[in-house]
Design a protein around this nucleic acid. Structure first.
Lengths: 190, 190
DNA sequence: TGAGGAGGTTAACGATCATTAACCTGGCCG
DNA sequence: CGGCCAGGTTAATGATCGTTAACCTCCTCA
């Protein structure tokens, strides 16, 4: 019952789609390209997804949901605000390093989503940023809310620079480098 | 001789193009849209630019050149590495706040550039990041080059989160918030 | 056995777009 | 005066692309 599901065909398609979208942009990949990369061709994708936009929507909604859900769980487990900040940063950098293409697509191509999914993703992302902002406010109650929100957003901007980086540095080194930088940046907010 | 040139028609077109590209993405703006936003219509743009891609190229190459040139000047004026880091961060945040659309377009749509311009922008951006990385290395000679480079890139990722922020916070407050965060983040790199 | 659906295929359609063609117009200069 | 050219216009072109249609072929299972 709790065994891990083997990856379905849809998941494989989504994974290669994420890589192609990350590399060339949503509009830079045709369904023919995408099909070819999956070993099938063009219109066969429509047996699995109703449209090209639906693929983008599915991948972006699901990662936004996962980021938020796990983020909330980590905050709940934390001993206090400082602990929670560290936990959120660690979670985000762990996710970003493990899913580089998705991170790239999420902050480059979210505007190509259909209206409904775009709103959903925006709402999830906003809740996710607010999760971090709330911990900053818990630490420094006199911090203006707008400043806390901007600081949280800036921290994620730092962490999301990850996937664009070359591979001249090991993942482990990059992980601690980025996490330390983000925590230091957030610590400087008064 | 040294008087400031009045903005030419081309510049006005580039400015509105930057705003439209930032709002909807390079592929999300048709030449008809862009013409309409300029008060002329569609093909008239070809009296000023040889192609739509050429507009993108001109704006991205020129801002990359300006960022690098001024960045070098600020470093040259600086008293030492720590001073240079602060100067580079201040310069970048000043530029980013003053040219939000260009910053958005630069890191979202640079892949839509024609081959030649893309290489040129990549080279300029790399030199710009190296400018900051070099100051970090001057401060901490035993820092691995790859780590310095990654740290510099992360700092710019933080600063470039600026333009996407809502306007709930004043530009002045945002300027110092981001600059302090970036400096703190860079200071944490050992 | 044989019906049916899941998952392919290729061909065609319709829309959108960047770009070009062909043409117009008003102001500047010889 | 008269021609030219900078800077517009609208209409046509050609390519690309997402999507649909029509058809095929196993595999499953009653």
């Amino acid at each position: 019952m709790t065994e891990t599901q083997e990856p379905t065909r849809r998941d494989q398609i989504l994974a290669t789609a994420a890589e192609l979208f990350a590399a060339r942009g949503f509009h830079g990949v045709s369904v023919a390209d995408l099909g070819a990369a999956c070993g099938i061709s063009g219109p066969a994708l429509y047996k699995h997804f109703p449209s090209k936009q639906a693929m983008l929507a599915e991948m972006l909604v699901s990662i936004s949901e996962e980021l938020l859900a796990v983020g909330r769980a980590r905050v709940a487990e934390a001993a206090g605000p400082a602990d929670a900040v560290r936990a959120l940063v660690d979670w985000h950098v762990e996710f970003a390093l493990g899913h580089r293409p998705l991170i790239i697509v999420q902050d480059r191509d979210w505007e190509s989503l259909p209206e409904q999914a775009r709103e959903q993703v925006r709402r999830l992302q906003r809740q996710y940023v607010d999760l971090l902002a709330a911990q900053l406010l818990a630490q420094r109650p006199d911090l203006p809310r707008a400043a806390a929100h901007a600081a949280a957003q800036a921290a994620f901007g730092l962490l999301n620079s990850t996937p664009r980086a070359g591979h001249a540095i090991s993942d482990d080194a990059l992980r601690t480098l980025l996490a330390d930088m983000a925590v230091a940046a957030l610590g400087s907010v008064t």
